[in-house]
Amino acid sequence: MARAGRKTAVEWLIFAVLLTGVVLTCGPFAWMLGTSIKPDAEVFQFPPTLLTGDPKLDNYSEIFSAIPFGRAFLNSMIVCIAITLAQLIVCSMAAYAFACLEFRGREALFLIYLAALMVPPQVTIIPNFILVRTLGWIDTYQGLILPFAFSSFGTFLLRQYFKTIPRELIEAARIDGAKHWQIYLFIVMPLSRAALGALAIFAFVSQWNNFLWPLIATTRVEMQTVTVALSTLQGQYNTDWPLLMTGSVLAVAPVIAVFILGNRSFIAGLTAGGFGGR
């Protein structure tokens, strides 16, 4: 009895710690949601209110007239889905080569490839800009998508996962006369759904949040992504917080949707890939 009682106490403790984590994580979201329907004067009121007594929902229609939010949302969707698909294809093919093909210098090449992880993205901004501009791709979807079509993180994640697939399966397929593209497509890919799902979420979310490149690679309002469009609400002297938070609520919706849909494979993929810290 005593033992069972202590176990409950420990459970309560864990529960309390986890609850603190939940509050800390959800607090900003709650504030965002609450602020999006507050009157302007109540935003920084003290003591702060979480919910206003005088909710105004007009912000949810005003956001579409204040900035071209609908168009920006569509742009973000197009760009993020395209980048996600591109990374899934490019990274899985590269990972297949690094994991399943035998060739000279493979490990050295992979190390160089991994070194790209160490290059901070800011360093590549100007060369990328010059390249994309020379190609005449400023203000185009390809200019927004292609610089992110490959990812060394994604390749690494998938290579680690592909390595865990039993060699016997691949060898059996080869004995049956399967070509590499068949092994890749019919054996490796279907067995790696968890890792592919994780990469898809990771790529989608990080691109959805990407601000620097879409800011630089677009100059026309019609090509802005959600992050850039929302930043126009934050002025030099004045910020319309309720409207900005309204936009933010709408902007996080797809991310939350993607995460809920792929949650299981996201966590499974990250632990299986041995990249839990990232």
């Binding site: 901004i125 800009f129 601000f211 620097l212 930043s231 609400l233 934050q234």
Partner: peptide
């Protein structure tokens, strides 16, 4: 047009190129 927060980031990149 760019908001104040992003204007110089974009301008600096363009001018550097």
């Amino acid at each position: 047009h760019a908001p104040w927060s992003g204007y110089f980031t974009r301008l600096d990149t363009q001018l550097a190129a």
